[in-house]
Amino acid sequence: MLDLNITLLFQLANFFIALFVLNLLLIRPVREIIKKRNGIMDGMAAEADAFNAEATEKLNAYEAELARARQQAGLAREEGRQSGLNEQQDIVGEAQQSARQLLAENRSALRGQAEAALNELRNGISDFSARLGNRLLGNS
């Protein structure tokens, strides 16, 4: 049977003293270290989350800027294309106007030359018919 005597009280006191000393020397410092590490890990996790959020925000801003730049490039390309078409139409219009003017000048010059040649032929016909009449009549 269990003998309850003074040694049990000494062993129990010895156990609680050992527990108190271990608590002071080992358990409390380990708990403090664990709390500090948990705090550091929480801080690092929060910092990592903040970094991820910032990276996501920068990526979204970059994508938005890239989309805006693409849109502006498309608008600039379309404006350039339209400007080129307008310039092309202006150049073609000027060339057609110049061609019409040149054609009108050439037609006018040809009419003048044709009228001059016709007048010359008309003037030459009377002389030619007089010479022909003289030859036919024998007045050579």
Score class of each variant (00 low, 15 high):
Leu22Ser: 15
Phe10Asn: 10
Asn60Glu: 08
Leu8Val: 12
Met44Leu: 15
Gly138Gln: 02
Met41Cys: 04
Ala45Gly: 10
Phe10Pro: 03
Asp49Lys: 11
Met41Phe: 02
Leu12Ser: 12
Gly39His: 10
Phe15Thr: 07
Ala13Pro: 00
Glu94Met: 06
Arg100His: 03
Asp127Ile: 11
Ala99Met: 04
Gly133Thr: 13
Arg135Gln: 14
Gly84Ser: 06
Gln71Cys: 06
Ala13Trp: 03
Ile34Asp: 01
Asn23Ala: 12
Gly93Phe: 03
Gly138Phe: 01
Val92Ala: 05
Gly93Gln: 07
Ser126Phe: 13
Ala13Met: 05
Asn139Cys: 00
Gln101Thr: 08
Ala46Pro: 02
Ala130His: 05
Gly74Met: 09
Arg122Ala: 15
Gln72Phe: 05
Glu87Asp: 13
Arg37Pro: 03
Val92Lys: 03
Ala45Met: 05
Arg68Asp: 15
Gln82Glu: 13
Glu87Ala: 09
Ile6Asn: 11
Val30Arg: 12
Ala18Trp: 00
Thr56Ala: 13
Asp3Pro: 02
Leu103Glu: 04
Met1Ser: 05
Arg122His: 08
Phe15Ser: 10
Glu63Trp: 02
Ser129Gln: 15
Asn123Tyr: 06
Arg70Thr: 14
Leu9Ile: 08
Gln82Ile: 14
Gln96Tyr: 00
Gly133Arg: 11
Ala69Glu: 10
Ala116Trp: 01
Glu87Arg: 13
Ser83Met: 03
Val21Gln: 12
Lys35Trp: 10
Ile33Asn: 08
Ala95Leu: 11
Leu103His: 04
Asn60Leu: 06
Gln96Ile: 05
Val92Phe: 00
Ala95His: 01
Leu12Tyr: 00
Gly124Asn: 07
Asn134Lys: 09
Leu19Lys: 07
Asn106Pro: 00
Ala48Ile: 11
Ile125Gln: 14
Asn38Gln: 15
Arg31Tyr: 12
Ala117Phe: 01
Ala130Val: 02
Arg77Tyr: 09
Asp49Ser: 07
Tyr62Asp: 11
Ser126Tyr: 11
Gln72His: 06
Phe128Asn: 09
Lys58Ala: 13
Ile40Ala: 12
Ser129Ile: 15
Gln88Trp: 01
Glu94Phe: 01
Asn119Ile: 02
Asn86Asp: 13
Ala64Pro: 06
Gly133Asp: 13
Phe16His: 11
Ser83Asn: 05
Arg135Ile: 14
Ala13Lys: 07
Ala99Trp: 00
Glu105Lys: 11
Lys58Pro: 05
Leu19His: 06
Arg111Glu: 10
Ala69Met: 04
Leu12Cys: 07
Asn134Glu: 14
Leu4Lys: 06
Asn60Pro: 01
Leu12Ala: 12
Ser108Met: 02
Ser140Val: 15
Gln89Glu: 07
Glu105Asp: 11
Asn139Asp: 14
Arg107Ser: 04
Gly39Cys: 10
Ile33Leu: 13
Ala130Gln: 01
Arg131His: 01
Gly93Thr: 12
Ala50Cys: 05
Phe10Tyr: 01
Leu8Glu: 11
Thr7Cys: 01
Ser129Cys: 09
Ala61Arg: 13
Gln72Val: 07
Gly84Tyr: 03
Phe51Thr: 13
Asn134Ile: 00
Met1Asp: 08
